[in-house]
């Protein structure tokens, strides 16, 4: 069992793209409530950074939602899960910038 105590413990990653741990997600929640008085999912997304990476939340949205809903339940706030869906913006996939650049485009 000696080996056990010396073992290095890895963090539990919620959002792989932005490298955000479970602990950070929880801290961000408390910071948001304390300093902004907000329970808003979009604010939570912006503050934590989760769901804003390359894959646009395909992997971590479920976790963000679970953590937020769970914490809100603890403080007695009910939230409609439909409101937890973040806004999606193009481009949906990483693209080379040159791909969308059009030298002939005229500025309006």
């Amino acid at each position: 069992m000696e080996e056990e105590t010396h073992r290095f413990h890895h963090p539990a990653i919620v959002c792989r793209c932005m490298d955000i741990t479970q602990d950070e997600m929880v801290q961000t929640f408390f910071a948001m409530v304390k300093f902004l008085g907000s329970y808003d999912a979009d604010t939570y997304r912006r503050l934590s950074g989760a769901v804003t990476g390359f894959c646009q939340g395909r992997g971590c949205l479920q976790h963000l939602q679970r953590i937020l809903a769970g914490k809100l339940r603890e403080v007695g706030v009910q939230i409609d899960p439909d409101k937890l869906l973040p806004r999606r913006r193009p481009p949906l996939q990483p693209v080379p910038m040159g791909l969308l650049y059009d030298p002939e485009a005229v500025e309006l």
Binding site: H10, P11, I13, R16, C17, M18, D19, I20, G53, F54, C55, R58, G59, P94
Partner: peptide, 22 residues
């Protein structure tokens, strides 16, 4: 290597949906 903690990473989904094989 991951963005913030420079952790080693490898592919997760293999069907072009996650970001771990970039």
């Amino acid at each position: 290597y991951s963005a913030k903690y420079h952790r080693p990473r490898g592919p997760f989904c293999m069907i072009g949906k996650c970001s771990q094989c970039l």
